[in-house]
């Protein structure tokens, strides 16, 4: 049985091979820079991105509306370091077959690359309730954006102050 990752990894590996082959072909013609060839590897650094650009990249011209009571975002007000910042999300947004939270995005505005992670849920998820630990480069707003199956966006936002320096522990 192929798990989704296996099959997707295989597809991507094939795609990466194809891309590399093409890129190398391109290189021989002097059309692509080495950086573009390297960009095919999934762990290569991506360029810095301002949060406004991240939002446009992810959502185009769709603007998230404040989720108010619909999303409860639980993050520490003060995090003693930015390496492990727990984020908990509870929501009463619908999870019905015809209208459900399809994706959840966690975005730390001031990070070099603001998108921390993107999650995909299904109507079988039953209820939006999830958690993870993220990294923050420093004091920043963290946003959780829920994307409904119809493309509607809901946003919850909170500032996390990250203290640095000192020793402690």
């Amino acid at each position: 049985m192929n798990t989704p990752i296996e099959s997707r990894a295989r597809r991507r590996a094939l795609k990466t091979l194809a891309a590399t082959g093409m890129a190398l072909g391109g290189l021989s013609l002097g059309l692509l820079t080495p950086a573009q060839v390297l960009a095919a590897a999934p762990g290569m650094p991506l360029p810095d991105e301002a949060v406004a650009d991240t939002l446009v990249r992810l959502f185009g011209d769709r603007k998230p509306q404040p989720a108010g009571e619909h999303i409860k975002l639980d993050a520490p007000l003060i995090a003693e370091n930015g390496s492990v910042v727990p984020i908990r999300i509870e929501s009463d947004l619908p999870m019905a077959a015809d209208n459900y939270v399809k994706h959840v995005y966690i975005i730390s505005d001031k990070n070099r690359r603001p998108l921390n992670a993107k999650f995909t849920l299904t109507p079988e998820s039953g209820r939006l309730s999830m958690a993870t630990n993220v990294r923050m480069a420093g004091t920043t707003d963290v946003r959780v954006i829920a994307e409904m199956s119809d493309g509607t966006l809901w946003e919850a936002k909170q500032e996390v102050k990250v203290t640095v320096g000192g020793c402690g522990g």
């Binding site: 003060i78 203290t163 640095v164 320096g165 000192g166 020793c167 402690g168």
Partner: peptide, 9 residues
């Protein structure tokens, strides 16, 4: 019990 910078001692 006091703060050394941002850390609580």
């Amino acid at each position: 019990g006091k703060f050394l910078g941002g850390r609580l001692l």
